[in-house]
């Protein structure tokens, strides 16, 4: 009995873990089968059939997103004690705390830098690369090389980049980090890139760009291939080629996709804290809003964490709104 209880609630051995996984899947299948059997019988009203199909999702998102969202908004106006219990309202204090002090100011500046630089650089590089390798021999391979960082975790990416930004070696020793090696080749003084401000932020933005360019490139490449042949032909007959063809035909034709890519990458840059968490050596000067959230959460300061989460949400809204607006515009042209 103990073994069974541990298996379900505290699995330790390999066997327990695998059995509880199978158990969970079997439980799920049984539940689905039960629901399907109930609504599959004759003369069940349509609304019940609808609930049978959509109900689980409606319940799950209510429990997993809507309720927590309301809770977090409320928490963000509360004071929390050191063991994470709410001890009363404190108005906007959690929010205003992010707008004072040098550390927080840098955190906000970093967030803005991430929000703009990551999407612009990733989309720009992705667009250039997608155009350059379009219909070239070995296109698939060339695209896979740039897309690869997208498939691996940001933590693994952060570890890979560790050996680019590695701290300077002691005097006289050879460098371990590629950047310091190259930097000293051109006569620079090796430096600890990741702990300086603002070098640390730029160093990590580069990592995020490295990760996101593959996404931009893939989506834009598909868009470029979808540009109607006749338009390209007509422009070519008119004598456009190279740069002119790119700026006058390609870019305007894929405008909608460009907006989608920029906004998607912007939101990813805003929400993900993995790169900073893995590479930023916990320095306040490297933080962004998403890592400030995690720091507050891990110190049980749920009020401040809630405020950071709500701020992220508030920043996401205009990005999405811009996206929807551009979509509408594009639709009305058609």
């Amino acid at each position: 009995m103990d073994w069974l209880h541990d298996m379900i609630f505290q699995p330790q051995s390999t066997v327990q873990k695998i059995v509880v996984m199978i158990f969970a899947m079997a439980l799920f299948v049984a539940l689905v089968a039960l629901i399907m059997w109930l609504i599959g019988r004759p003369r069940v009203p349509t609304w019940l059939v609808f609930l049978g199909f959509a109900g689980p999702v409606l319940i799950a998102v209510s429990l997993g997103l809507i309720y927590p969202f309301i809770r977090t908004v409320l928490d963000s106006f509360h004071q929390f004690n050191s063991v994470g219990q709410a001890v009363g309202w404190n108005g906007l204090d959690n929010y205003t705390s992010y707008f004072s002090g040098q550390g927080n100011r840098r955190m906000l500046i970093n967030t803005v830098l991430w929000l703009f630089l990551v999407p612009i650089l990733a989309t720009g590089l992705g667009l250039v690369y997608a155009t350059l390798v379009d219909r070239v021999r070995g296109e698939k391979f060339a695209k896979a090389l740039v897309f690869l960082p997208m498939a691996i975790s940001m933590v693994a990416a952060g570890i890979a980049w560790r050996y680019i930004y590695y701290q300077p070696a002691p005097k006289g020793d050879s460098q371990i980090g590629l950047l310091n090696f190259l930097w000293s080749l051109v006569g620079g003084e090796p430096t600890n890139w990741l702990i300086k401000y603002p070098q640390g932020t730029f160093a990590m933005i580069i990592v995020m760009v490295w990760i996101q360019t593959g996404f931009a490139m893939t989506v834009l490449s598909a868009a470029i291939k979808a540009v109607p042949d006749d338009i390209v032909e007509a422009a070519r007959i008119d004598g456009a080629s190279g740069w002119k063809l790119f700026t006058k035909i390609t870019v305007p034709s894929i405008r909608t996709t460009l907006v989608v890519v920029v906004t998607t990458v912007a939101i990813a840059a805003l929400k993900s804290f993995d790169v900073v968490f893995t590479m930023g050596s916990n320095l306040p000067s490297n933080d962004i809003l998403a890592s400030a959230f995690y720091n507050a959460q891990s110190t049980l300061n749920y009020g401040k964490a809630g405020a950071a989460a709500v701020l992220i949400f508030i920043l996401v809204i205009p990005v999405i709104a811009y996206n929807v607006l551009q979509m509408r515009k594009a639709d009305s042209y058609r």
Binding site: F9, P11, A24, F69, R71, A290, F313
Partner: peptide, 27 residues
């Protein structure tokens, strides 16, 4: 609901799971 960042959901869910005694399991 896609626009809700998951950060917004984490802490209330954590408290919920703790209340249900699920800490330390895969659930």
């Amino acid at each position: 609901l896609q626009i809700v960042p998951i950060q917004v959901a984490l802490i209330p869910l954590l408290k919920l799971y703790n209340g249900w005694g699920l800490t330390g399991s895969f659930w």
